[in-house]
């Protein structure tokens, strides 16, 4: 009993801290009142308002597109980098490479955003590309730091990968490229998928870097939310948060259902 309490108390405090704000948002997204703090009655009017908010919907569409593109680019880069770090042993410049891959994980966003913007401006001056800034530059910027996250996830999976599985496949007659596609890739696929999802979410969530490298006419969802919040809280933002929480929860349930199928037999 005491053991259970020792486990439950810190978890209770921690999860209350993490989830109370979210629960309040979910609750008040169904509030009839315009006031965001007093509950007057159940209503779904803020969901309707959200649906009718064209600027927000457009921004959401743009953000989803940028997130999908940048997450895919990040996955290609990050998977290669993760394999290189986990499997290529010591190659020249490995430390520098590992450093360059790890740095975006912790680099303050204002620095990353500013430096990328200046880079794009310098490139435009020198080569005329990218001409102006917008969704493309945001996607490139997001792919850069997304790749770092994908590389970390893939590298971690490969670090505890039992290499005798690959040896066994080779021993049974599979050539190296076949070993990769039949054994290594299927077994790292969950990590790669998780990496993609992580890069996707980070892109969808990023305000600072996007604000720097985006251009006129390309306002992402966080940029629109940010300017709305600065003008004052409205319950339609809570409705949006509730939808996102619901989406993530459903996604996680599906993901865990795929990742941990019930055992047969």
């Amino acid at each position: 009993m005491r053991r259970a309490a020792r486990l439950a108390v810190p978890l209770g405090i921690g999860f209350a801290f993490l989830y109370l704000p979210i629960l309040l948002m979910v609750l008040f997204s169904f509030n009839d009142s315009r006031l965001v703090t007093t509950f007057t009655g159940f209503s779904t009017r803020w969901y309707v308002a959200l649906w009718e908010n064209e600027a927000l919907m457009q921004a959401a569409g743009l953000s989803l597109r940028i997130a999908a593109v940048s997450a895919t680019m990040a996955t290609v880069l990050g998977v290669i980098a993760g394999f290189a770090l986990a499997r290529m042993g010591r190659f020249r410049g490995r430390t520098a490479f590992a450093g360059a891959m790890a740095a975006p994980l912790v680099m303050p966003e204002v620095i990353t955003g500013l430096s990328l913007l200046l880079m794009f401006v310098a490139m435009e001056q020198a080569f005329g590309f990218p001409a102006g800034r917008g969704a493309d530059t945001v996607a490139i910027a997001h792919a850069t730091f997304g790749a770092a996250y994908v590389a970390v996830v893939v590298q971690a999976r490969l670090a505890d990968f039992d290499t005798s599985l690959e040896e066994a496949a080779m021993d049974l007659g599979a050539r190296p490229w076949k070993v990769f596609f039949l054994i290594t890739l299927p077994l790292t696929a969950p990590a790669i998928a998780a990496g993609w999802l992580l890069a996707f979410t980070l892109s969808l969530d990023d305000l600072v870097i996007a604000s720097f490298v985006s251009g006129p006419g390309a306002s992402t969802l966080p940029m629109v939310i940010f300017s709305a919040v600065r003008l004052g809280l409205t319950p339609d933002l809570y409705a949006l948060a509730t939808l996102l929480v619901g989406l993530v929860a459903v996604g996680l349930v599906i993901a865990s259902w795929i990742a941990w199928p019930r055992r047969r037999g």
Binding site: G14, L18, P21, I22, L24, T201, L233, L240, A241, L252
Partner: peptide, 25 residues
């Protein structure tokens, strides 16, 4: 998963929740 889940939802909107919690009214 419960620790990570909030991280997957919008950072800005979670900050927004704290405005709702902490403001004068």
């Amino acid at each position: 998963m419960l620790v990570i889940l909030p991280f997957w939802t919008s950072f800005l909107l979670r900050i927004t929740a704290w405005i709702g919690i902490l403001q004068d009214q």
